[in-house]
Computed example of a mutant assay.
Amino acid sequence: MSSADRPATLRYGPNGFRVLSPGNHVLCAVSGEKIPLEVLRYWSGERQEPYASAEIATRRLLGAA
């Protein structure tokens, strides 16, 4: 399996993320949706979770997801 076919492992910070193991996507912590790294915009550094959209991120951070 090439890195293009598997999820990356990331470390999320307040202003960006660092790739710990290569891949081309991550899975949304709430929906399970595949998020290509080049379009990943929403995450929680505190929870170390990626989110597929602003709506999902907001719901999760407010405790509704």
Rank of each mutant, 00 (worst) to 15 (best):
P14C: 13
G16Y: 09
R47L: 14
G13Q: 14
Y51Q: 02
V26Y: 03
G23H: 05
A52S: 13
E49D: 07
L10V: 07
L20G: 00
R47T: 05
Q48Y: 04
M1S: 13
G63L: 01
R60T: 06
N15F: 12
R47G: 00
A4S: 14
R11C: 04
C28Y: 08
F17N: 13
I56V: 15
A8L: 14
P22F: 06
R18K: 12
Y42N: 00
G16A: 10
L40F: 03
P7Q: 05
I35V: 13
A29G: 15
W43P: 00
K34W: 10
V19K: 14
C28G: 04
A29L: 04
R47P: 03
V39Y: 01
P14W: 13
I56T: 13
I56H: 06
L62D: 03
P7A: 05
A29D: 15
L61I: 07
E46H: 11
S2G: 14
C28S: 03
I56D: 09
G32D: 11
E38S: 02
A29F: 01
Y12I: 08
S44V: 05
A65R: 00
E46I: 11
L10C: 09
E38N: 02
R6E: 08
I35G: 11
T58P: 05
R47N: 06
I35W: 11
Q48I: 09
R60Q: 05
T9H: 07
K34T: 14
C28I: 08
N15A: 15
N15D: 15
W43E: 01
N24R: 02
S31P: 00
S31I: 01
G13T: 12
P14E: 15
G45D: 08
H25K: 06
V30G: 00
A57F: 15
A29T: 03
L61E: 13
R60A: 14
W43F: 07
S2D: 10
Y42S: 05
L62V: 05
L20A: 12
R41I: 10
N15G: 14
G23D: 10
R59I: 03
S53G: 04
S21Q: 12
R11T: 09
A64L: 13
E38H: 06
L37Q: 10
Y42V: 04
L10Y: 10
G23K: 01
R60V: 09
Y42C: 02
Y42F: 15
E33A: 02
R47I: 02
A54F: 07
A57C: 11
E38C: 00
A65W: 12
L37N: 11
L10M: 08
S31N: 07
P22H: 03
S44C: 13
R11P: 01
L40A: 08
E55G: 04
M1F: 15
H25I: 02
L37W: 00
A4N: 07
G23P: 08
D5K: 05
Q48V: 03
V26W: 08
L40R: 01
P22Y: 06
A52L: 07
A29H: 03
G23F: 02
